[in-house]
Write a protein that binds this DNA or RNA. Sequence first.
DNA 1: GTGGTCTAGACCACC
DNA 2: GTGGTCTAGACCACG
Lengths: 130, 130, 130, 130
Amino acid sequence: MFFSIDADGDIPIYEQLVRQVKLAVADGILVGGQMLPSVRQLASELAINSNTIARAYQELQADHVVESLRGRGMVVRRDAVKRCTKARNSLVADGVRRALADAISGGMSIDELRELFEAELVRQSGNGKP
Amino acid sequence: MFFSIDADGDIPIYEQLVRQVKLAVADGILVGGQMLPSVRQLASELAINSNTIARAYQELQADHVVESLRGRGMVVRRDAVKRCTKARNSLVADGVRRALADAISGGMSIDELRELFEAELVRQSGNGKP
Amino acid sequence: MFFSIDADGDIPIYEQLVRQVKLAVADGILVGGQMLPSVRQLASELAINSNTIARAYQELQADHVVESLRGRGMVVRRDAVKRCTKARNSLVADGVRRALADAISGGMSIDELRELFEAELVRQSGNGKP
Amino acid sequence: MFFSIDADGDIPIYEQLVRQVKLAVADGILVGGQMLPSVRQLASELAINSNTIARAYQELQADHVVESLRGRGMVVRRDAVKRCTKARNSLVADGVRRALADAISGGMSIDELRELFEAELVRQSGNGKP
DNA sequence: GTGGTCTAGACCACC
DNA sequence: GTGGTCTAGACCACG
């Protein structure tokens, strides 16, 4: 599968999985009706405790992104792409908003901020998704 | 005192205190030689256990922002402002960097990002420090 | 484990733990990648409150000697040995420096000092690491 | 008076006073029958809380170095010089002993130690009491 | 199972 | 009065 996990970062592993599944759905990499890998398979593939995978799947189920087909596994819901796209956009925007709020309340001037922003845009636009 | 604590957030209380003291020093609200409120006083003021305050103060001491004058209290170090200003700037820049990376890897285009950024600048520059 | 705690000394218990871990790392008794005993296990082994152990571990983490693997425990950092060896040497040298300064300012002559020093070397070189 | 106090070090102020009085007695700077400055005078001279001076004097009294003449102040005892000289020597020797023990148990080799010792002797023999 | 946070309350040394 | 240490016990998130 196409997941990349950082086991020692500050974001919980199950949370990383949830995000990546949602992003994949929003990007059309995972489409409605498609099966997710089984808990055990993904666990061994990523060398991660299967409890952690299960928890991620539960959260995805609670968020109505996937549903459980008894005895067969988890499947992406037909209506997931709408939800995920919307969620992605608002999440991303929120992140930017929070960072700006922190910067301003932390005493950084508008000009300093704009400068930092443009520098980062240049630096990152190469790495992202060309 | 000027501390505002969110006891139910995901940031530990003692960590919130540490940050706010550092920001206050970086902003010149707390200056070298100035005493912090006593552990017990601040604890009762914020309705927080005094151990939690003490822990924040110890972290500030370990970070060379403050020192303990035996039997008299905690005082802001003369050289704290440099450290705090530098730390603040790198923290803020990191936040912006991470948000941008998230946004780009989340599929937002450069133009959308710049638009969002400018909109936020306008929206927040009013609230910040009028 | 190999820790020895003096609960009635003037050095805090958590500080004794921190020092002993650092020394063990500097001496190669603890190596990078190795796990520390769990907070609860060490607490019951040493008959010490687990908060005290946790505090020691947090200080070690803040000092970049150890890192926390979420849900799994504390592990010695690969780069800890450099830090600890350097820290140990400067600590030890400081101790000698201070003792000599005290001795000289206390009126002891250079010759008396050298005599005392050599006598101690003989006396202690047997106890140290035979 | 001839006391030098470091109010922010890790040695308690009253302890610094006690040591300096004892050293002065051992060195013959203070002799039997001589009066110590009054608590209030010394307190204002050193800009120190008079409780602290009082505590130092009490400890000196408990150690039979001075005695209180009711209504007149503290006087150095005729037999103090013996006690202080002996105490000074054993204190100083103990300091050296402890530092060496720390160094050896900390993993420093005999040769490294001897080198450090000689270097320090040269460095400090100039500063001490020429 | 792991560490992390918080509370309540005790005792200490220092000023 | 000040901060510093320790205990006991609770609750949480993570794996």
